[in-house]
Simulated scan of single mutants.
Amino acid sequence: MSSSCSGNCGSCSSAGSCSEKKEEANLLKGVREAILVLSGKGGVGKSTVAASVAVELAKSGKKVGLLDVDFHGPSQPTLFGIQYLRLEEGQKGFLPVEVAGVKLISVGLVLDDPDHAVIWRGPAKNGALKQLLEETEWGELDYLVLDFPPGTGDEALSGCQLLPMPKRALVVTTPQEVALADCRKCVDFCAKLEVPIIGIIENMSGFVCPDCGSRHELFGSGGGALLAKKANAPLLAQIPMDPAFLRRCDDGELPAGLENSPAVRAELDKVVNAITAAK
């Protein structure tokens, strides 16, 4: 898509009409704020956290979009049970799939086969991200939640550069050092790109036995607090492992899983409150 025009582009009769076309093409203009969900480490449940935050924001009355930026492993369609749907196009661009009050866009919804590998180099990924961002009919949104792949590579950098609206980040980790070491790089990434960190989310924070009620720290404890101190940001939530919730996610029923997991939902409510309270 061309980002500039002198008013004599050949397709417009005047500078005024060209300006109108540019305004129509700016499909991100109705998005008030972007929330970047980041993690330096794979396997920490970042996609589940991103989806859950989006659903809980929508339940609180906010207008929410969710963009799955993990091109090589798009998990959002699976979490919502829509992996066999395909995006449709409207008059101006892609039409998001609306599920649980959330407008969802994912590269997993444009592939011919959800099991096909996406073998793209950096420029191809950057082009796809630009297209999904700028050629989607987002409408009016309070928040656009972006689920990035692990690390601080092309997708995260391009996302920060392409998003014209204010943006803040959530950093997801698990308690153990092997995750914290990589997530500290995410904190440094946000500092260098001047993206404020809303807070740290410690996922897989203990397991409470449904039979005896005993709590077990399967991945250690205290890691989220250490990362929050490093980031000079609050530890927003410590989300426990709930096997019933995880099973519902695997079955494509994440919203229903949240409804039936009060321990998980209580921690996510803290995240939602932190997002919406900031001015």
Rank of each mutant, 00 (worst) to 15 (best):
C18Y: 08
V195Y: 02
G224I: 01
P175E: 02
L141H: 01
L146F: 11
L85T: 11
F207L: 14
N260W: 02
P243C: 00
A277N: 12
G93D: 11
P255Y: 01
D113M: 11
F71Y: 14
E259W: 05
H72M: 14
M241G: 02
L246K: 13
G127I: 04
K192C: 08
G199D: 06
K63C: 05
D242E: 08
T78W: 10
S14N: 04
P164W: 09
G65T: 04
M241N: 02
G213R: 06
K63S: 14
L146I: 15
R265N: 02
L170F: 04
W138S: 09
E202V: 10
I198G: 01
L258K: 12
E217I: 03
L146W: 08
G40P: 04
S261M: 09
E253A: 15
I105H: 03
T136H: 11
L146R: 03
G151N: 07
E89N: 11
K125M: 07
N126H: 11
G206P: 04
L28Y: 07
E267R: 12
E20G: 12
L218F: 05
I201Y: 00
P123E: 07
G153L: 08
P234S: 05
P243D: 08
M1G: 14
G252R: 10
K270N: 13
V208S: 14
V187S: 01
L95M: 09
I275M: 04
A244S: 15
R184M: 02
G90S: 07
P175I: 03
A124D: 06
H116R: 12
E217F: 07
M165N: 06
